[in-house]
Design a protein around this nucleic acid. Structure first.
Lengths: 108, 108
DNA sequence: CACTTGCGCAACCAAATAGTTGCACGTATA
DNA sequence: TATACGTGCAACTATTTGGTTGCGCAAGTG
């Protein structure tokens, strides 16, 4: 539970993905979040902890309540990787394009 | 090892993400893939198995070799979720916008 | 036909994960 | 001040993970 976490591991769990979507709409207290799920308060609390550890969530103490809100910028890491993936893929098709062009010119 | 897998779990592991990027460039045999890592052939083989289970990879038998290649469309699921996330976020800002507008008009 | 090569698969293992229960400790409220 | 809330945190458990070793088997090669 205290290993090096990253965003990818964070979103691996469906409950955590749901929490992220929930907090994308508005900040919430742990109890408020937990109400949206069937799991116990503590189970949700653990997920929140995981998300906080990898800085997807930030706390804000308000009296005895703690409001968790999203650090949306962290999600860029996922997008960045996805972009990298798409670039490689595109490059592959470019190369395929080259090959096809070459075949065509050889045909002449 | 045989639970219901999804793309998000698949990309949670850094080695698997690397394999995906590798195969984005070109299809490969398990041995060829393994050569790019320090892990053993079997360890990589397991990762390949995971990726195949959630249909990110597809096999193609060629003689005694098996070529694994990407089913790039599976990656859309990630993008789809990310899109959903961004939409919720945008909506939130729209609402914030509304609030600001309202404040402005009340000021008048 | 022996022999090597490429691979999957089963059995094991240590570590991590998701969840549970129970408690501690400030912050509000009667 | 006594009590009820909101929450974190520690301990314990079952399950899953990522990895290792070793085997088997089909496809090629001498």
């Amino acid at each position: 539970m205290e290993t090096r976490r990253d965003v990818f591991q964070a979103i691996a769990d469906p409950t955590r993905r749901a929490i992220i979507l929930l907090l994308a709409v508005s900040a919430m207290t742990p109890n408020a979040i937990a109400e949206h799920f069937n799991s116990s308060r503590q189970a949700i609390s653990k997920h929140i902890q995981v998300l906080t550890e990898c800085e997807i969530l930030k706390q804000e103490q308000k009296g005895r309540e703690i409001h968790y809100h999203l650090n949306a910028s962290k999600m860029n890491e996922i997008e960045k990787w996805l972009e990298q993936f798409k670039q490689l893929l595109a490059k592959r098709f470019d190369q395929l394009d080259d090959v096809l062009k070459q075949l065509k010119s050889e045909k002449k």
